[in-house]
Design a protein around this nucleic acid. Sequence first.
RNA 1: GUGCCCGUAGCUCAAUCGGAUAGAGCACCAGCCUUCUAAGCUGGGGGUUACAGGUUCGAUUCCUGUCGGGCACGCCA
Length: 585
Amino acid sequence: MTSLDHPNFKKHFAELLRTAAHTLIAMDGTMQIELVRTKQASHGDYSCNLALQLARPLHKNPREIANLLISALPVSPYLDKVEVAGAGFINLFLKNSAKQQFLRHILQNKDNFGCSDVGTGKKIQVEFVSANPTGPLHVGHGRGAAIGASLANILAAAGFEVSREYYVNDAGRQMDILTLSTWLRYLALNNIGIPFPQNAYQGEYVITMAKQIYRAHGQRYVHRPELLLDGLLEADPETIVHTDEQLDQLIANAKKILGQDYAYIHNFVLTEQLGDCRNDLMEFGVEFDTWFSEQSLFDNGLVAHAIESLQSKHHLYRQDGATWFRSTDFGDEKDRVVQRENNQFTYFASDIAYHLNKFERGFDQVINIWGADHHGYIPRVKGALQALGLDPSKLEIALVQFAVLYRDGKKAPMSTRSGEFVTLRELRHEVGKDAARFFYVMRKSDQHLDFDLDLAKSQSNDNPVYYVQYAHARVCSVFAQWDGDMNDLIETDMEVLSSSVELALMQKLIDYPDTVESAAKEFSPHLIAFYLRELAGEFHSYYNSTRFLVSEMPIRNARLALIASIRQVLNNGLRLLGVSAPDKM
RNA sequence: GUGCCCGUAGCUCAAUCGGAUAGAGCACCAGCCUUCUAAGCUGGGGGUUACAGGUUCGAUUCCUGUCGGGCACGCCA
């Protein structure tokens, strides 16, 4: 880790301090020595509060401890000087030569720069989006998609073996409602007018699917629609289309009437919506390794298996005709039904089976990216894992808050009722993939996101996406006017890069791998977005203050080596976020 | 009503699991293009971190309470 071909100065200095600390106190290997990048140049490049932390156990003045640590510090070719400051901070100064040499490391590693092996090849699964395939993805799903995809990229860069998964809810009531909705629209095309329930799917896409069926099969699925209202006749015609019970009755009737053909329509709408969703996500730069079917859990007996397993461990009981999981034993606020009075399993039951299956597939860690409205669901899922003898801490649930769209400074209407929502596709068409991907991850994921559509579209320095991309394009345009050989840059003497701006830029580049590592460790893609914004800012400033294509070759080549390194890091970071790095703008 | 999350500059947000003088961007004001892209840069004012206590060398961060906002509280998914 500390060799020149793969230097991580932060870790290197931490090791030096660890060695020094051993001379003062017996430390177990698990004790973390935290180094922090300083905010002020006068505090050096890295700072450590170890002396302050040791003050209590050693019963000594922190500054005194700091001095003892410094005198016990092994020599290092990268360390310029060390100082004690403030209450007892140890400030470490990185040698300029170390910063300068680092550019070679970047230029040699190219696209791999920033990757590390901290994940040690552990198998990690990221499950995200997992929207019901009952209609187009909307802008809320978009954020989960952007965050999940970026996080998966970041984890892969940090050395995890990542698997991206979409859980397809193809077994539940919502799919039945969509199937019914489509069939009703289809009947209408055949001039059979049955009042369309308000709580059915209202969207235009349902009519589109009905037309497709009609075009392909004509009247084949008309059957006996007069039976559809069975059991509903006594209801008030005004309210017939309102309640859930009535909707369920309609579904039951449709299943009875259509028989085998129900499965056809069900399968058709599922395939259609899933295909649309997959296509939408692909255009958004989001792809999955696995599309996991909920229905397959039932077909393969995994739900029954999971429930039996809970049963054998005495975590289930019968009450009111239903089967309950005693989730209160595991911190949930109430027990939960896994099998209904009518013998049907609940969504929770299949979710237990799904999570059990995830760990049976051998993942060391599982991350679920959920909408924040599902937070109440966490205790029961973790509880179920614990009940099954699994370690619930291996399941990490990252909650994503919703994005609110703003247009002309006002909230854009976002009513999910009556199909009147902004779809992800519309957003992409309006602001473009790059802006959408970047804006979605610009905020900490568990924070609400105000998505300013006008800003995302604006071609100005106000727009962080263009700001970062523009920095990349600017470097490219410099190189377009240079006819030298990139290999010469790696060999060039970097010592001339000694201005404070240049040294700060190089330190910023050195920070990149640590940023990727933090983003992976904290599941925080927004750190990459912030980092890129800062790096681009420092570059633009450098660009305005300094000319690169000067006549003195040593200076020119060194400066080009620096901006080539910047371009490389901008490129690598943007790639993690799924944002393009254009050569020209 | 109960539980979870949140409250930081006029606005949108950071702050590397308790660290040094709380940082960016936008907005506002004043400047910079016969020079590699002005989609850029430079400088300036802006804060009792909602409020009140507590824990300690040290609190935006941890604990308690109050106020304000969001979400969740189904044999839905």
